[in-house]
Design a protein around this nucleic acid. Structure first.
Length: 866
RNA sequence: GCGGGCGUGGCGUAAUGGUAGCCGCAACGGACUUAAAAUCCGUUGGAAGAAAUUCCGUGCCGGUUCGAGUCCGGCCGCCCGCACCA
């Protein structure tokens, strides 16, 4: 019997030391055992861990510990996504060097992660900013170049004319640079691209085989890749007087069936024709400037009010040569998709309709539901978008009239191809991956620009190209450009004076192959083939849903690119994916609108007050924890006051893992109380007789045994399918049952045995979630071997099934009674038994039975008339 | 704007198309205590009824089905992503 409280502050570090000294979590290849690779998305070393990390890494740790107990050889590594902008911002704002800032953060966060008691193999730790890591990235990039997977082309960036720097989309706020406040301009820059579009079709098709990925992620990726079947065709252009112009206008459409509904053409403001005509048209030049101020983010472009500028040129309708469609430069046409030019069909596209109404262009309906009088179809402010093209027919469309949408598409395609004006084309929304960044804190692009040899890859023997450390951030722009010596080199080919590429890689490259590096973190090749063959793929990958598209798609691409260059023999890196929800918290605000940290808010008589000023606070929404809203709770302080196990338990209980979880004081306290309760219950259980019992179990013991074995079966199932919240509810149930049994005075031998058995199960079941408490309880119960080395128990199947079932009885779909019957009772016997029930008789009230539905061992539904 | 998701008691939630609300929090009542904390036991979706029991109830409207929280269509609200944040 234990009366003291469980002291997490003393016990947790002790067990962490124990695991570490015994090297419990260091993974070694062992072909005699099945492997299991569990990985959580590695963190950016921002300085301190946040609750989102706690949730993510706790889930991964539960899986790792569970699989380990189930006999798998588990790989569970950790590393740092260590390049990126925040380090440079710290350098600019606080004068710290990005490297020292990053490594200090890593040290701090490593300590915090260790205090969580995660079963990580720290011997495999990697940091992407380490030349030992990024040298392989550079080598692979050179191989990618040779394999034709790299391209250099011009693309548009957000340019801050004051800071003389490229801005990320998130640094553009209402069209202005976040630091300078200057109006942002779009600028063309030669950049490096990885040809992910070479794999569009394959990346799309392979999604069907990712059965253990959430359907929503696969759908999002499908839509992102955006395969469409359409036509690329050209318009003949003419001026106002009808003279044919030398240029042709190429357009892409998936709705060539609506060609007779065309009333204008629109080209992107960045289209070659728009550039050409703006030379002689000040209004157009001004319009292009205006559009350029919107920046490069698709969201702002698509949200902006539809605007256009008439170029004063016309496109001849391909089938009605006398019909002239005015050509506009428009802010809603994206240069990156199709040809950067469209024909507008206002009746059947909302954006086109908005545009047509604004500029007084004709709206001609050309598709109508079958059997509807075309004259009755009028378009006012909403375009008609038919749901099923086969159920619609063409109108006002000359030779297409009466055809369905698919038939019309076919006919137009045939005519275009016959005349040579156009061709069917499969198009993808997916664009090539621009990987150039004009920043310091990233992996240098291993390329040299030579005046005569042009682009020359750095010879592999000269790798890594390391970042110079003596850089300053006092000037705007990229420190690599300003560095006095770094970029000046001899051309490796001809020996002439040349310059290094000063761009660094997008940090998404770093995170596109780290999962493979963990297989052999110290190898002198990117990935050691034998190690990868054993460990790959990642069996369970866990991270935030915000990475559903970019990071996961880039990783899938990178694995293929590495395959093509013989670095990896595995196309799909993540066999199973789980996207966890966010951690949210209430927000507090003062009267003057300042956000208040939860630690500074105190509750009195149902109202919240500022702990220091006493001012009453208003409660805002429950939102994602963020520094700006100050609704953050520091995991370190929670671990200090309640212990890591409590924090871990809270993160897993209540909310399903894929959904957002709200951090509340009360919830944390509840989790803490439960750790203490388990400590008491198991202390009590440990004092019971240990003698094995072989006779007949009495009613109390039988009941507890059934619950214990059934809970074990359910928890095993729930943990296997990542339903942590359900597993926890079951564990509560078992602890309640155990607690009830412990209250029985002078228990008989059968009950004493059962209490110990249930207690053992209980400890082993919560061990993946609260590993320190589990070890402590396990030792208390007299076990010599630690929990980490104890296999997962197996329930006795005879105890997990019932031979009787409760069957609900419905009359006309409403529950009227229930009945206990032997499992597998025959249908006619069920019918007979059910008809005798009082509740059924009352509900039937003598009405004739129309139908008798029996779902074996589940439910009965009697359908009566009247 | 486009793409994706979510919506169930006072709250977090549970429910292979089959008895809606397991488990937890909070609240209330009780035990223990000089007292409080802690702990333990009990009650708790709404309405009617003394009770048995009945009716209503899963954001809103409609559909499929013997049967819908679950499937389908339309709306409303909230959240996430949109290619240089990580």
């Amino acid at each position: 019997m234990t009366s003291e409280r469980y002291n997490s502050r003393e016990a947790e570090p002790r067990w962490q030391k124990f695991w570490s000294e015994k090297r419990c979590f260091e993974a070694k290849e062992d072909t005699s055992r099945p492997k299991y690779y569990v990985l959580e998305m590695f963190p950016y070393p921002s300085g301190r861990i946040h609750m989102g990390h706690v949730r993510n890494y706790t889930m991964g740790d539960v899986i790792a510990r569970f699989k380990r107990a189930c006999g798998f050889n588990v790989l569970h590594p950790m590393g740092w996504d260590a390049f990126g902008m925040p380090a440079e911002n710290a350098a600019i704002e606080r004068g710290v060097h990005p490297k020292s800032w990053t490594y200090e953060n890593i040290a701090a966060m490593r300590g915090q992660l260790k205090s969580m008691g995660l079963s990580l193999d720290w011997s495999r730790e990697i940091a992407t900013c380490d030349p030992a890591y990024y040298r392989h990235e550079q080598a692979m990039f050179i191989d990618f170049m040779q394999a034709g997977l790299v391209e250099r082309k011009v693309s548009l960036v957000n340019w801050d004319p004051v800071d003389q720097t490229v801005l990320a989309n998130e640094q553009v706020i209402d069209g202005r640079g976040w630091r300078s406040g200057a109006m942002v301009e779009k600028r063309e820059l030669a950049q490096w691209f990885l040809k992910i579009t070479d794999f569009s079709e394959e990346l799309l098709e392979a999604l069907d085989r990712l059965e253990k990925w959430p359907e929503k992620v696969r759908l999002m990726q499908r839509n992102w890749i955006g395969r469409s079947e359409g036509m690329r065709f050209s318009f003949v252009l003419e001026d106002e007087k009808g003279n044919e112009l030398p240029d042709k206008l190429w357009a892409y459409t998936t709705r060539h069936d609506t060609i007779f509904g065309a009333s204008f053409c629109a080209i992107s403001a960045d289209h070659e024709l728009a550039k050409k005509y703006s030379a002689g048209d000040a209004g157009l030049a001004e319009f292009r400037r205006e559009v350029s101020a919107l920046g490069t983010s698709e969201e702002t472009i698509e949200r902006a009010e539809k605007k256009g500028y008439a170029l004063g040129i016309y496109a001849r309708h391909p089938f009605q040569p006398k019909l002239k469609l005015p050509v506009y430069a428009a802010n809603f046409v994206l240069m990156g998709y199709g040809e950067g030019a469209i024909f507008g069909c206002p009746a059947h596209d909302q954006r086109d309709l908005d545009f047509a109404r604004k500029y007084g262009l004709p709206v001609i309906p050309v598709v109508a539901p079958k059997g509807v009088d075309p004259a009755s179809l009028t378009i006012s402010t909403e375009a008609y978008l038919e749901k099923d093209g086969a159920e619609s027919q063409m109108i006002n469309s000359e030779f297409l009239n009466g055809l369905s949408v698919p038939e019309a598409k076919e006919e137009v395609a045939r005519r275009f191809e016959a005349s040579g004006m156009g061709k069917r084309k499969v198009n993808f929304r997916l664009r090539d991956w621009g990987v150039s960044r004009q920043r310091y804190w990233g992996c240098p692009v291993p390329v040299i620009h030579c005046p005569t040899c042009k682009i020359v890859p750095v010879p592999k023997s000269d790798l890594p190209v390391t970042l110079p450390e003596d850089v300053t951030f006092d000037k705007p722009g990229n420190p690599l450009v300003h560095h006095p010596t770094w970029k000046h080199v001899k051309c490796p080919k001809c020996g002439a004076n040349a310059t290094r590429e000063t761009d660094t890689f997008d940090t998404f490259i770093d995170s596109s192959w780290y999962y493979a590096r963990f297989c052999s973190p110290n190898a002198d090749v990117p990935v050691e083939a034998g190690a990868a063959r054993y460990w790959m793929p990642v069996d369970q990958y866990i991270g935030g849903v915000e990475h559903a598209i970019l990071h996961l798609l880039y990783s899938r691409f990178f694995a293929r690119a590495m395959g093509k260059t013989h670095h990896l023999d595995w196309d799909e890196p993540f066999a199973s994916l789980f996207t966890q929800g966010m951690v949210v918290h209430e927000t507090f605000k003062t009267g003057s609108g300042e956000w208040v940290f939860p630690v500074d808010a105190t509750l009195r008589d149902g109202k919240w007050f500022h702990a220091k000023t006493g001012e009453e606070l208003t409660i805002g929404g429950i939102e994602k924890m963020s520094k700006s809203k100050r609704n953050v709770v520091d995991p370190e302080s929670i671990i200090e006051s309640f212990g890591a196990d409590t924090a871990r338990w809270f993160m897993l209980s209540d909310s399903p893992p894929e959904r957002d979880i709200e951090w509340t004081e009360a919830g944390a306290e509840g989790a803490w109380k439960f750790t203490q309760r388990l400590w008491r219950i198991l202390g009590d259980a440990s004092s019971r007789d240990t003698a094995p019992f072989t006779g007949e179990f009495g009613p109390a013991a039988s009941e507890l045994r059934r619950i214990a074995h059934r809970t074990l079966a359910a928890v095993t199932d729930d943990l296997s399918s990542l339903r942590f919240n359900r597993a926890i509810a079951r564990i509560y149930e078992l602890s309640n049952a155990l607690s009830t049994a412990l209250a029985i005075a002078n228990p008989s031998a059968d009950l004493a045995f059962t209490i110990r058995e249930a207690g053992n199960f209980l400890v082993l079941m919560f061990a993946p979630m609260m590993p320190h408490l589990a070890e402590e309880c396990w030792a208390l119960m007299g076990h010599k071997q630690p929990v980490v080395e104890t296999p997962w128990p197996t329930p006795i199947s005879a105890l997990t099934v019932d031979d009787e079932v409760t069957i609900a009885v419905q009359v006309n779909g409403k529950r009227r009674d229930e009945i206990r019957l032997q499992k597998g009772t025959a249908k006619d016997q069920v019918e007979a038994a059910v008809m005798k029930l009082d509740g059924v008789k009352r509900a039937l009230d003598g009405k004739p039975v129309v139908k008798f539905i029996v779902v074996p061992d589940r439910i009965v539904n009697i359908v009566v008339s009247g």
